[in-house]
Design a binder for these strands. Structure first.
Lengths: 198, 198
DNA sequence: ACGAAGATTGACTGGTCAGTCAGGGCGGAT
DNA sequence: ATCCGCCCTGACTGACCAGTCAATCTTCGT
C-alpha cells in the first residue's frame, strides 16, 4: 500500500509537470486539459482522477512552489546573517529559479495577477512577503538599515523588483545568460541594500 | 460632419469607460461583451460597430493610457530637473493614477502579464521603460547616480517597485488613504534614489 | 419633405471545451 | 485461481459566448 501511495504521488507529479510545460507554452487560458493529458501521455479523463479541475492544477503549481520557496526563505531568515546578506540570499533564491525551471517561472509570472483566486488563496505568497518584511525590520533594529522607512513598503518594493526582473526574462526583454543573471543579482541587491542602508 | 466625428468619439469613449468598469470588476476573461453593452446602456451589436473585438477594447485601454503616460514621462524627462527629482516625479505620476482612476489601474495591473499580445503589441510600455532608463543614465552622467550600476536593470527595478505597490492597492493588501499614498511615494523614492545615489 | 448613409438593435449561429460517466482492464491480496 | 477495488479510457454532453447580420430607426443634407 506504500507502493500504491508512491505511484499515486508519481502520477500527480507527472501530470503537474505536464501542466507546467503546457501552461508555460500557451498560457493557462489557452491550454486545453486535453493538451495536458497528451503531454503526460495519459487519457483525458485520468487528469480528473488526480485533480479536481484545471484550476486545481494551477493552484497546486502555485502552492507547492511557494511552500518550498517559503521554507527556503525561512532558512535564510533563521540563519541570522546580517540583513544585507539575507537580502542577497533571498534575491539569489528567487532569481536563480529562472535557470532551474524556466517553464515554472513562466507560469508563475504570467498567471499571478490573472486570477484573484490564485493571489488570495495562495497565502504562501503573502507569508513570503511577511518574511521579507521581517528581514528588513531586523536590519532596522540592528541599525544596519534606516529605520525611518516603512518595512512593509520596502518589502513590497523588494518583491516587485525581483518579480519584474523575472518578467523581463520571461518576456525575453532582458538578457539571461549565466553572467547576466549574476549581474542582475548584484545590481538588484546593490540598489536595494544601498537604498535601505543607514 | 465635425459633430458626427465628435459623437463617434464620444461613443467610443463611453464604451471604453464601460469596458474599464466591467473589466475592473470581473476581470477581462470573465467579462461578457453583453455586460459591457449593458453597462454602457447600448445594444450588444453596437459594441462591434465601434470596436473590432473584446480584445480590441483591452488593447485600446492599454494603448491610450500608456500613450498618455508616456507623454507625461516625456515632459518630466525634458524638464531637465536633477535625476533624483525626475525619479520622484515619475513615481508620483504612476502612483497617483490609483487615486485618479482606480478601475483603470485595476485593469492595467491585473491584465498586463495575462496576454502576450498586450505586452508585445503595446510598445508604449517598452518605451516608458526606456524613458526611465534614460533618466537614470542621465543621472549617472551628471555624477548624481553611481555609474557602475546597469541603467537598464535599474529601470526594471524601478518599474517593478512601482507596479508592485499598485498591485498592493489593487489587491487591498496595502492601505491606500491619501496619506498612505503620499508615504508610499516618499518611501519608494527614498529606497530607489538612496540605492542609486553616488 | 425626402432619401441616403450611418447608427442601432438583438436574435441567432457556430465552435469551443471543461467536466462526466459507463465500461474495460489490471494488480495484488487471499 | 479468483475476485475486489482502483486505475484508466475517451466519447459525449451541456453550457457558454464572441461575433454576425438582416432589419429598423435616426440624422442631416438637399
Amino acid at each position: 500500500m506504500v507502493a500504491r501511495a508512491d505511484r499515486q504521488a508519481d502520477r500527480r507529479r507527472q501530470i503537474l509537470a505536464a501542466a507546467v510545460k503546457v501552461f508555460a507554452q500557451k498560457g493557462f487560458h489557452a491550454s486545453r486539459v486535453g493538451d495536458i493529458a497528451e503531454e503526460a501521455g495519459i487519457a483525458y479523463g485520468l487528469v480528473y482522477h488526480y485533480y479536481e479541475s484545471k484550476e486545481d492544477l494551477l493552484e497546486t503549481i502555485f502552492r507547492t512552489t511557494w511552500t518550498e520557496m517559503l521554507a527556503r526563505i525561512g532558512e535564510v531568515e533563521e540563519a541570522g546573517a546580517p540583513a544585507a546578506e539575507a537580502v542577497r540570499q533571498v534575491t539569489a533564491l528567487l532569481l536563480r529559479t529562472w535557470r532551474r525551471d524556466p517553464d515554472l517561472v513562466r507560469v508563475l509570472v504570467r498567471e499571478v495577477t490573472r486570477n484573484q483566486h490564485v493571489q488570495q488563496e495562495v497565502e504562501e505568497i503573502t507569508q513570503a512577503m511577511e518574511a521579507l518584511e521581517r528581514i528588513i525590520r531586523r536590519g532596522q533594529e540592528s541599525g544596519e538599515f534606516r529605520s525611518e522607512l516603512d518595512s512593509r513598503l520596502s518589502a513590497v518594493v523588494f518583491y516587485g523588483a525581483l518579480e519584474e526582473v523575472l518578467s523581463g526574462w520571461v518576456l525575453g526583454q532582458l538578457p539571461d545568460r549565466e553572467e547576466d543573471i549574476a549581474r542582475a543579482e548584484q545590481n538588484v541587491v546593490a540598489v536595494l541594500t544601498g537604498g535601505l542602508k543607514s
